[in-house]
Amino acid sequence: MPEPGPNPIDIGTLPPDPSMEFAADEGEADAHAETKPRFPVRRVLIVVVLLIAAAGVATLGVTSWRIIAQKDATMSVPQRIGNLVVDGSENGVTTADYLQTALAAEVELDHTVGAVYQEAGEKDVLFLGGTGLIWTPSRDLDSAMTLISDKEGSVTNLHEVDPGPLAGVMKCGITKTPDGDLTVCGWADHGSLALAMFNNRTEAEAAPLMRDIRNAAEKR
């Protein structure tokens, strides 16, 4: 009877080589160490991009709504605004036509108006304005202000004031004339732009009067 030989070796049951396990664990640890920081950074970048995109969409939405709400404005010249009455004399009409032409040459508008308003006490108001789609109201208003200048210089101390319920932007400043300082105010929105020069009035008097003129002249 043959003697039993050594038990056959089952390669499927070989114990794992400890050195290989160590190498595998070390490789996994290295790979984990290399990749782990990338995910938080990537997520942060994605979040930042999404926030920026959301802010941009919100800003675009507000701007678009404002343009839609303001772009179809109309403007007229009421014959009377409070104590102001349109000067219908030849000189008044000629001055109004000149103001309209000057404004149309400086700012691209679809329709322009102009008038000389009179009030007792030599408190005349020269008014010029127009309507059309205006993409940059504040910038266009500053550009229109260059129309009002003389040898002494242009409008100085130009700054924003309360535009009133019609919103947009309104600014006032001072220009020098041979007869003394003249208060200048103007407004602009996405559908209209206007300027007015106030004789013998301070800014404290001119700014609220400009809002009254706007409320009477501009319609949406």
Rank of each mutant, 00 (worst) to 15 (best):
V49M: 09
S192P: 02
G88V: 08
L14M: 05
D124L: 11
V77G: 07
M145A: 06
I46Q: 03
I46N: 01
A206H: 11
A194F: 12
Q100T: 04
T156I: 05
Q118G: 14
V125P: 13
E218S: 02
N83E: 15
P178C: 01
D110S: 14
A120I: 12
D179H: 06
A206T: 09
L128P: 00
D212W: 08
T177M: 05
I148P: 00
I68F: 15
G153S: 01
A73N: 12
V49A: 12
F22R: 11
R201L: 14
F22T: 09
T35Q: 13
H159N: 15
H32V: 08
E26G: 10
D150T: 00
V44H: 04
C172R: 15
L128H: 01
A55W: 06
V48I: 10
F22A: 12
D17R: 04
L14S: 00
Q118K: 15
P15S: 03
A23T: 13
A31H: 13
F198S: 15
L45S: 08
I213F: 12
V49S: 10
G168D: 09
E119K: 11
G61Y: 01
G61Q: 02
S19G: 08
R201C: 07
P208D: 13
T202V: 11
K219A: 03
G191N: 10
L166T: 14
D179W: 02
K123V: 07
T74S: 14
T177Q: 09
A24Q: 15
